[in-house]
Amino acid sequence: MTRYLTGRIGQAVLVLWAAFTVTFVLLQALPGDSIMIKFENPELGLSPAQILEVRARYGIDEPAVLQYIHTLMGFLAGDFGYSIETGTPVLQRLAEGLPETAKLAAGGFLLAVVLAVTIAFVSSYTRFAWIRGVLLAVPSLFISIPTFWLGILLIQVFSFQLRLVPVIGGTEAQSLILPVLTLAVPISAPLAQVLCRSLDAVYTQPFVAVAQAKGASRQWILWRHVARNALVPTLTVAGLTFGELIAGSVITETVFGRNGIGRLTEQAVTAQDIPVMQAIVVLAAFVFVSVNLIVDLLYPVLDPRLAAKGRVAV
């Protein structure tokens, strides 16, 4: 088990390093000189000597390989460099936005799970074919809706037409309701689809027929036998949706004007703030890789058969 664990962590670190390298190559090693566009602007009135100093501070006169090593070392030490737009440390800007985004993402993910479980279990348990048909169509509709449009539509309906949620002001909880809902809808779709399919798949298994033959009620079969076994594939997809969660927060925070990592991303792209963007991409990859590592390690806990095999293969 220890060997498996170290192997998996090693793999995760390798993917992270590769993600860092890919973004570095895309963003920093290329000839574009967005830093100098800002500082050589005559309006700033910097003397040539000062410009040289700035160049030295951002390390842009070094060869790309040295820059790469310096940036990598910095990242390993928790130093993400300085934002070009504001001049403040990138770490500080990330730390400012992180709590907001964490709240939004946690809420969005929880609501997505609730939505997905409701859709899947009701459609699986109901005796009415039409309810099942309608529910099964919901996820396909959910993934076809542009997230930003959904956000605007919700503001329109709940804030302006029904006046249920204030646009400006309002309590913390009130300001979270609509963004969380906006974020949850696209994420619940793949979860619901996979959960529906795994429920259906488990129902065809012989042990379900045995339980039925022994006289177990539908409810008992669903909860005791089917739900537990349907959980593993759903967990895999749940881990994968974390990437979507970060991407979704970019849109949601922009639409609702919340100051989190997503908003920071949008600002970084507009201002071509490369150090900030690089840190955000690496952070996103870090979250994604860690969550999926945890999911992988959870499999044997959920399904003892996988632990017995000694390696995880879903």
Partner: peptide, 10 residues
């Protein structure tokens, strides 16, 4: 491992 939108923005 990089979310699609972030890759696109990069």
């Amino acid at each position: 491992s990089i979310p699609g939108l972030l890759l696109a923005l990069t």
